[in-house]
Amino acid sequence: MTRFLRTTRTVVRRLRGASRRQLAGLVIGLLVAAGVAVSSGAGQAALATGLLALLLAAVLAGVIHLSRRMARLHRSNQEAVRELRGTVDQLQRRVIAAVEKERLAAGDRHLELTEALARTERLTARGAEVLLHEQSREIEAMFQLFRAVTPRAPMPAGGVLHPTDLLGLVHLARERRPGLTVTLGCGPSTVWLGYAVGVSGGRLVAVEHDENRAIRVRAKVAEHGLSGVEVRHVPLAELSVDGRSADWYDVDALDGLSDIDLLLVDGTLTPAATDPLAPALHVLGRRLAPAAAVVVDDEPARVAPRQGGGFGLTVRRRLPGRWTALTHPQATASTVG
């Protein structure tokens, strides 16, 4: 009984998963089988034989239909296998081509790296020699600085300026002995220049737009007792030069600066860093002394003939470090720094 119930449940589950066409065929087959049984029991052999023949014909037709369906399914599977095989072959060829391309590229990179290493090995000795030479030059400049200046307090670090840069400024100031020196921007160079101009009793005015920096440098100046150095905080204002506007020092705060013997324009400290010389000469060019010198760093010095020509500053002199001095051609040899 238990086995019968289990079999019945299995049949019911399978019938639930059958399609409508399958259920209809099953019902028709059961009805024909029932008709055969009833006809046979009623003694109607001819009818029973006919129904049985019909049932056999239906079964044969189902088998033929099933075989055709299985043949179509087999052909579809074969086509799918062929397509899959073609896809796999194509993917394999692509993978092989990509691997070969990467192998060739890796070989090229290896060759380039080998050549670069060879060049590096050839240049290492030269680079070390150049670096050693630069370090030696900076050390020599530092010794010369302290021979030229006797500080009364610890000197500030050079910041962006190297000892050779500071040496060029100190040497120029001691050589020209300016009465009034104006620097646009202040920093450690202000202290060094303060000592240099103080030897001849000169005066140094450092113009600075950053109030905090001005306060720090002013404290350093007081620490060294440089009474001839003034650190003037000048805020920024809009200035028009050749039809172009730029943020520069407030011109009204620069009153009183005249007969300037030495003007230092450092592009790293002034507001108009892209072209610092143009606004400086626009405002202070007419306040320069006849034999004045304008010191600029290398970048603005490239356009100095155009900007300084209106004030006669057409003579260049390359100073130690990053500086170039621009002076008037009629200045005497003793004053052309």
Rank of each mutant, 00 (worst) to 15 (best):
C186Y: 02
D165P: 03
V63Y: 10
A293N: 08
W192H: 09
S200V: 02
A98L: 10
T270M: 07
A71R: 10
T327L: 10
V38T: 15
V32R: 11
E211T: 04
L5I: 15
H133W: 15
V199S: 12
V99C: 09
G168A: 02
A293S: 00
T7V: 13
V315C: 10
L30K: 13
A34Q: 10
R6C: 05
A46V: 13
L113Y: 02
D250G: 08
R3W: 01
W248R: 00
A106G: 10
T181I: 01
I139K: 13
L180V: 01
V217D: 01
P329Y: 00
L23K: 08
A58D: 00
R322L: 06
A128Q: 10
P276W: 05
A173R: 03
L326G: 01
P235C: 06
D266H: 06
A42H: 12
T190V: 01
L269Y: 09
R176C: 00
L131V: 00
L264T: 00
T327S: 09
E79C: 04
L169G: 06
L66Y: 03
V234H: 11
E134I: 03
V36P: 07
V88Q: 07
L226C: 04
Q78N: 02
T8S: 12
A292N: 00
V182L: 06
I139F: 13
R119N: 08
I28M: 14
T181K: 03
L60Y: 13
Q92M: 13
R232T: 02
T332S: 15
P276T: 03
D259C: 03
G225I: 02
A128T: 12
S19D: 06
A196P: 00
S19L: 02
D247V: 09
L91D: 05
A58C: 07
R68H: 04
Y195M: 03
W192C: 05
L269S: 11
C186S: 14
E121F: 13
R16E: 09
G285F: 07
D242I: 05
P151F: 05
G35Y: 06
G107F: 08
R16K: 06
R176S: 08
R306G: 11
R176H: 06
P271Y: 02
L84N: 00
S76L: 12
H110V: 10
T10F: 14
R68K: 08
T183A: 09
E238N: 12
V295Y: 05
R213N: 01
A214N: 02
R216I: 10
L52S: 13
L288G: 04
A153Y: 11
A148D: 07
L262D: 01
L167T: 02
Y195D: 07
T190H: 10
D250I: 01
V265Y: 06
A98R: 03
Y195E: 02
H133A: 15
L51T: 07
H282V: 05
Q44W: 14
L84M: 04
H110D: 14
A278W: 03
L319D: 00
R322Q: 03
